[in-house]
Design a protein around this nucleic acid. Structure first.
Length: 581
RNA sequence: CGGGGUGUAGCGCAGUCGGCUAGCGCGCAGCGUUCGGGACGCUGAGGUCGGAGGUUCAAGUCCUCUCACCCCGACCA
């Protein structure tokens, strides 16, 4: 490609609404343009990057036995309205995130946010026997989700390119094998893409399913919090992370004692006022879920994790979909005094969930359920009842790892991949069964595995740039070599540059040739902004010095190589660059 | 959905108390001079001032409504 003929141009200034990071660099470089909120065009350079990433994904999926197909974006809504034995339909669960429209006959349609439904229907038609299993079916295709608020440039958008693979197996062992294959393939994909990532245990959520892992690209711009151990390889979503609670020294149980605690509405106020550690207090927070008043208790030094809490409630048969902090009215109605809430004296009308930390200590301070008063020496089970003991506290930086005793720390990232075992949820819903060797029908065991292709591009930019611009890994760079021609008005220089351009192309190297009548500074700055891994300069200076000046984007130094060696030298650099990704 | 902000040339911006032909920088076109880190001069093209309605002799500027986008929060297979 010649820069002089390229559609896009670089922007000297950041666009008004750019947020910095990947958004600013990708827009300034002309990789993408926003059309409307959360919806982008991929321009020639951006499209090449997407193609490179997609190709890596495709190769690894095929290597793992995947078969590529392409499913419709437009789908009839009724397949989203299938009602399972219990719980909401998919359409209800997704709510307004699902794009809905009507066709000319007035039939309700949706734009596919994912394809479990369609792929299950398809596979059920063909895979009728245990002999037809397993099947690994995938596509790389546009997904549409009407997110409440797109953000982070390309990190969270409403229309995005995703690879989604679905596995169909005869039994649980088979599903486990497929799952492991995908986990391995995912590691290979992100490694080849040059991404720094971690694999974490994820919350499978209320949807169910046993195993689930997220692949997080490490970046501060991400929206996901994870906890990882500094010693072993334990890493988990913050909503899921387990940790060891510290044990407090046991004291002889003392008698309850009400104390006057003016203006002590928070745990820290209270602990300071009574001169006790925060861990000696009980934090009580009230929620309403499924029409029931729920009181969550954790030790004062910990925080309540609402996701863990709601999962617990689901398990206890309470519909936590509408769980929210109890309003002042709801508290008053239940006879609870805000700021001085307490498990003391609560009967079965309040569902009490206690974090296991409360077993590791005694003589706690709790609210007196009376303004300006707390109660000392509160002990279980002497003084209050608990419906469920559970891990409902958030892990924190400095907490102790459950696996190895190491220390956990928080890390931020963006979810670029997510794999999980679905079991028979969709196969039962759509009657996707196969016949075993005895002729008996069974639902297939499914797994689903997603990769955000566009998000890989965005997180790569977040991870790999400097003050001048992007630094693409060799494996996904739109072009490997930027050939910069200077002093081109001299016929001899132009011919030399043209010849090298032709030679590079003939050698199969992806090269973009800057043949514009621009000054050196403009061309160098563009090459830096656009992040091509190798820059090759032909100028009167380089020729005087013996040939072509070659510089890696990731390095400061350049060197001059004879024209005759130039192609070979660049081939070597590309080989090395690809290998080190 | 709640709160805040912004819409003026392809991009970034200015536009005073309502006033006369709506400006500046970048980019774009032509000519000339430059030529290794975003050069310079001259000339030129490019505008429904987000949209609709209103007030006024006069609206980019004031009023009403509306749309879009951005940010914070809520929400989020």
């Amino acid at each position: 490609m010649r820069v002089s003929q390229q559609l896009t141009k670089t922007l000297r200034e950041a666009p008004r609404d750019s947020e910095g990071g990947n958004q600013e660099l990708l827009v300034r470089g002309g990789f993408v343009r926003q059309l409307t909120s959360g919806v982008y065009s991929y321009l020639p350079l951006g499209n090449r990057v997407i193609r490179k990433i997609s190709q890596i994904v495709r190769e690894e999926m095929d290597r793992a036995g995947g078969q590529e197909i392409s499913m419709p974006v437009i789908q009839p809504k009724d397949i989203w309205d299938k009602r399972p034995a219990s719980g909401p339909t998919r359409s209800e669960a997704m709510g307004d995130v699902l794009f809905k429209l009507k066709d000319r006959k007035g039939r309700d349609m949706v734009l596919g946010p994912t394809h479990e439904e369609v792929v299950t229907i398809l596979t059920a038609e063909f895979a009728r026997s245990y002999r037809d299993l397993p099947q690994l079916i995938y596509q790389i295709q546009t997904k549409l989700r009407d997110e409440p608020r797109p953000r982070g440039g390309l990190l969270r958008v409403r229309e995005f390119i995703m690879k989604d693979l679905y596995s169909f197996d005869a039994d649980y062992d088979g599903m486990d094998v497929s799952y492991r294959k995908m986990a391995d393939a995912y590691r290979a994909i992100f490694t080849r893409s040059g991404l720094r990532f971690i694999v974490i245990q994820a919350d499978s959520g209320a949807i169910g399913g046993k195993d689930s892992q997220e692949f997080l690209a490490i970046t501060e711009a991400g929206e996901d919090d994870a906890m990882m151990c500094d010693t072993c390889d334990y890493a988990a979503n913050r909503e899921k992370a387990e940790f060891v609670r510290t044990e407090l020294p046991r004291e002889p149980e003392a008698a309850l004692e009400e104390v006057y605690t003016p203006d002590c509405k928070s745990i820290s106020d209270l602990a300071a006022f009574l001169q006790v550690p925060e861990a000696k207090t009980i934090k009580s927070v009230c929620y309403v879920a499924g029409g029931k008043m729920v009181m969550a208790l954790v030790r004062g030094d910990l925080e309540i994790n609402e996701v863990k809490l709601s999962n617990m409630l689901y398990r206890a048969g309470i519909n936590a979909a509408d769980m929210h902090l109890a309003t002042p009215e709801e508290l008053t109605q239940a006879g609870i005094v805000a700021g001085y809430t307490s498990p003391l004296g609560k009967d079965e009308r309040v569902f009490i969930v206690a974090d296991t930390s409360l077993k590791l200590g005694n003589n706690f301070v709790a609210g007196a359920n009376r303004v300006d008063y707390h109660v000392k020496n509160v002990n279980y089970p002497r003084d209050f009842r608990v419906d469920e003991w559970e891990d409902i506290a958030s892990a924190y930086t400095g907490a102790t790892c459950v696996r190895c005793g190491g220390t956990l720390r928080a890390i931020r990232g963006s979810e670029v991949g997510h794999i999980f075992k679905l079991g028979t949820k969709y196969s039962e819903l759509f009657d996707a069964t196969y016949l075993d060797a005895e002729g008996a029908a069974h639902p297939m065991l499914m797994g689903c595995y997603g990769i955000g292709v566009g998000r890989i591009m965005a997180t790569l930019v977040e991870q790999s740039h400097d003050e001048k611009g992007i630094i693409w890994p060799f494996s996904v760079a739109p072009y490997s070599v930027a050939l910069v021609g200077l002093d081109l008005e001299k016929e001899e220089n132009r011919q030399t540059a043209e010849q090298l351009y032709a030679d590079l192309q003939a050698a199969g190297i992806e090269v973009i040739y800057d043949d514009r009548a621009e000054t050196a500074g403009v061309k160098f700055n563009d090459a830096d902004l656009l992040g091509y891994p190798i820059r090759a300069v032909i100028s009167k200076r380089s020729l005087k010095n013996g040939g072509v000046e070659i510089k890696l984007r990731s390095q400061r130094e350049s060197r001059v190589v004879p024209l005759a060696d130039a192609v070979g030298v660049m081939q070597d650099e590309i080989r090395r660059g690809m290998a080190s990704a």
